[in-house]
Write a protein that binds this DNA or RNA. Structure first.
Lengths: 268, 268
DNA sequence: CAAGCTGTTGCAAAATATGCAACGGCCATT
DNA sequence: AATGGCCGTTGCATATTTTGCAACAGCTTG
């Protein structure tokens, strides 16, 4: 809609691949060097782009800070967090919270396992959408038309032999998940890791987030993990109740507009 | 330099404070609603902004993904990571890696403590710059003029009674840190948490990153933590050697330009 | 039922971004 | 040591793009 802004924003994913110099940016944008320079300068002023010692550009610090602030202001996350911690204290495994947005599912919170074996995942990282328990829960709540549309646009990488192979299988799985109200991922992403998840619902009954407990085979078998299902579901329902209490169905924040409260702090 | 882009980017920090509707955005930008609409649309197309169910806008998912990709492509981080893990395995405490950029210090990697007591901090989060050991290390390497300039622009919040109180004290501390080649934070940020850190240097001897080990009093006393200093310094030097080996002094990446390799995966 | 609010579109005026060409610094080459 | 080439940078005139306006549409509120 706005050409200038469009071009400027196209620089960001480009730099996410790695540092680039002015010429490379201009080429890939298909614009004159001077134009690219001015766009980069504007991005630089806003801290979204940083110029390193060799004069090349890469993504800047403010980007992290923004993403950070954004995720901390998500009210579902705020409400869910203590529940996730409590769940982790009970079972000891890794707990995740995820949301669906714009054809992507991404983690917005995580409580690390107490066991020495940990799994790789990170807040903000897009989820393996075709296999993750949280992804199934979130997609299962979409209308059938939307599900179909999404399912057909996806790739179905075979992470393991138990990964969801194709769109029909995925749609069947989503239907099942939608009916039973919970989901699993049994070695569909990494051979040795299993997950059990449950949905968090708003006041209108729609799924606004999904949570899951994950653990590797070496700690508990899939069957043992499944015994946690009632606990997981109860936790998800507790979050849903808390969440429905605050804002009626939507994603309204707590009302802090205009100033940025620093509620928690970090340490060296 | 580019007004349109400038305005569009100004929307991001605004939304970081919390969701806002069209009118609010237009007002705070000082532009007509239709203008704000078109800017928001462009941001939306790029996924930087998301429209929630109540029609209000907030920061979008792609922002997280971008920040994520960016941090994973930082070569210092990539090189340092195995060393940090190894250090964590030896001592069991939380290990941090941080860089300085554009008047901010921020964490770019973290290995969690193996002890049940953990500390709050998150990758991408700006560091408490006046007290953190890593911040002292990074700022100590700036020229005296820069140090002075930075120190005078800072706030000096008294997190605890042992926080750095003002600019002169901070500058003295930086001088000391620069000379001795290591730094501490003994309860300056949170009363019960101590840190020891050491600098990572590039081939030209300049400090490119800083690492630290942090532990709460309840696990080890400050004196015990200080016995780890040689180990921390050796680790930092090992990282420096690895880092200097790759690119001569700069922040060159590994050469993956044009395609985005998916080297690691997440799980539900 | 009407009034007010919010978001949305088409259009003409005007401000803005664009590409060009020329300059300057830097490194590598001859 | 000198030169050639490369990359980033600037001023300027052209014209493309954005902007604000005014009117419309959809929704909730009085």
């Amino acid at each position: 809609m706005s050409q200038t802004v469009d071009r400027a924003l196209s620089i960001l994913p480009l730099l996410a691949e790695g540092p680039a110099d002015l010429g490379q940016v201009a080429d890939r944008l298909g614009v004159h060097k001077s134009t690219a320079l001015r766009l980069l300068r504007t991005l630089h002023e806003h801290g979204l782009v940083h110029r390193q010692s060799d004069q090349r550009y890469r993504l800047g610090a403010r980007l992290f800070a923004l993403a950070q602030e954004a995720v901390e202001n998500l009210d579902v996350r705020e409400i869910a967090h203590p529940h996730l911690v409590a769940l982790n204290e009970k079972c000891g495994h890794t707990v995740h919270l995820a949301v669906y947005e714009e054809h992507e599912v991404l983690y917005i919170d995580k409580v690390e396992s107490r066991y020495p074996v940990r799994m790789y995942s990170r807040i903000g990282k897009p989820v393996a959408i075709t296999v993750a328990a949280v992804a199934k829960l979130l997609l299962a709540d979409l209308s059938e038309a939307e599900r179909r549309a999404v399912a057909e646009k996806l790739d179905y990488p075979m992470y393991t032999s138990r990964s969801t192979p194709n769109a029909p299988a995925f749609l069947r799985e989503l239907e099942k998940v939608g009916e039973q109200g919970w989901a699993t991922d049994l070695g569909g992403h990494e051979e040795s890791i299993n997950c059990v998840g449950a949905p968090v619902r708003g006041a209108d009954g729609r799924v606004v987030a999904a949570m899951s407990v994950s653990a590797p085979n070496v700690v508990v078998t899939a069957e043992e993990l499944l015994t946690l299902l009632p606990l997981v579901r109860r936790t998800a329902e507790a979050i849903s109740r808390d969440y429905s209490g605050t804002g009626p169905g939507n994603t309204g924040n707590t009302g802090n507009t205009g100033n940025t409260p620093q509620k928690e702090a970090s340490s060296s």
